[in-house]
Write a protein that binds this DNA or RNA. Structure first.
Lengths: 210, 210
DNA sequence: ATAACAATACCCGACCAGAGGTATTTTCGA
DNA sequence: TCGAAAATACCTCTGGTCGGGTATTGTTAT
């Protein structure tokens, strides 16, 4: 490995995307050390090889890319993490940044955009592609904050509500009092700050909890 | 162009994916004639060049890949269309087939899977990757049929319901009787075959109507 | 022009959800 | 082991939803 080359690891569950990135990147000042379709394999390799940069997808089969980002930063703080994702939701972008990502770009990026992003990140900047910059700077009233923390029981009941089950039906399926389910439902409404089921299901969907 | 080579056109809005496919495919018996990130450009090229095969994404910036598939088949019936998509919803797969696609594969396909698919399609078969085969063969009760036809008013009211507005609120905002809104809501339930709001919002979301 | 569909409106009864409380028992991590 | 959090349960009252009808007026495409 030459000192003047930037060593790169690619993590993406689509081998087509990995091929595309390799063919776009593996050249002059860049060196693709390895590529992985699952988070855990990638984790071991990154800990050993300490690459300069990880190109990371959010949707992985085993662990969330957001968690993997935090792990990488804990193991190898000097390794830069540039997230490449299809998600343009504000809360997902924010979560990656809070977990140490050095940049976030959408996958419909051009070759130039990608190379610019990589050099920006390697120069120590936090870098976004244009669309993402716009999303971060204008938090609209329809954008989401952090998803609320839900207990196991609440998640379970949320799913049953989403399946169209009534309070009574849920209660008898879980062998508890309907009054208990009503309490859980009220707590869900408070946590999501909504006032009825329709809104509840909408925001739970936006938070990808269903 | 040699007679023994299969000429291919790639249509995908992600240049990374295009690069990946090119590097995986452009070799021995295959020849990538061209690649496009928008449907209309691709359309003109395909009409002129009559490739043997089009690798087609469903999500395009200008037209739906489903519509483009029908167009291609109308212009050049001998050209095979192999859809490469991230969607695994039954109704989307079915729509592409009804519009003439010769195969459907998920983008997390391996190189071998991709080459197998291409040769199967070129041999005249209708080909699916394994996951898709499973989805087609077992239509579960959670799978979607065709989305129901909704009138303007119904779409409008559906959106207002999804925003958490009650029947009374909707009625006064639209200056009609609450009883009218109740009728519309009941019609929505019948069209979607659901029995309450929670289910309504869920299936409307699955149909991407919200 | 006429049939089909959309939008409007009404009735009734049964049931469910929502908002506000309070309180007990269980579970689980520090 | 002890305290916090989770899960359970109850109360009241108001309002909303849901299911089954029927019926009148517009619209619109054939």
């Amino acid at each position: 490995m030459y000192l003047d080359k930037t060593s790169i690891v690619i993590v993406d569950d689509h081998s087509i995307v990995i091929e595309g990135l390799k063919s776009l990147l593996d050249g002059d000042p860049l060196d693709v050390l390895g590529h992985f379709t699952s988070g855990n394999e990638a984790c071991d390799f990154i800990e050993r090889e300490r690459p300069d940069l990880v190109l990371l997808d959010i949707n992985l089969p085993d662990v969330s890319g957001i968690d993997l980002c935090r792990k990488i930063k804990a193991m190898a703080p000097e390794t830069k993490v540039l997230v490449l994702s299809n998600h343009n939701e504000r809360n997902i972008i924010m979560q990656t940044l809070q977990n140490g990502a050095n940049g976030y770009m959408l996958k419909n990026i051009s070759k130039q955009g990608l190379l610019q992003g990589i050099s920006a990140v390697m120069a120590g900047e936090i870098h976004f592609c244009n669309e993402i910059g716009g999303i971060i700077s204008k938090p609209t009233k329809y954008e989401l904050g952090d998803p609320p923390y839900l207990t196991k029981r609440e998640k379970q009941i949320l799913r049953m509500v989403a399946d169209g089950e009534t309070t009574q039906e849920i209660a008898s399926r879980l062998n508890v009092s309907p009054l208990t389910i009503e309490t859980h439902r009220r707590n869900l409404h408070h946590k999501f700050q909504v006032k009825n089921v329709a809104e509840l299901i909408m925001v739970a969907n936006k938070h990808q909890l269903l």
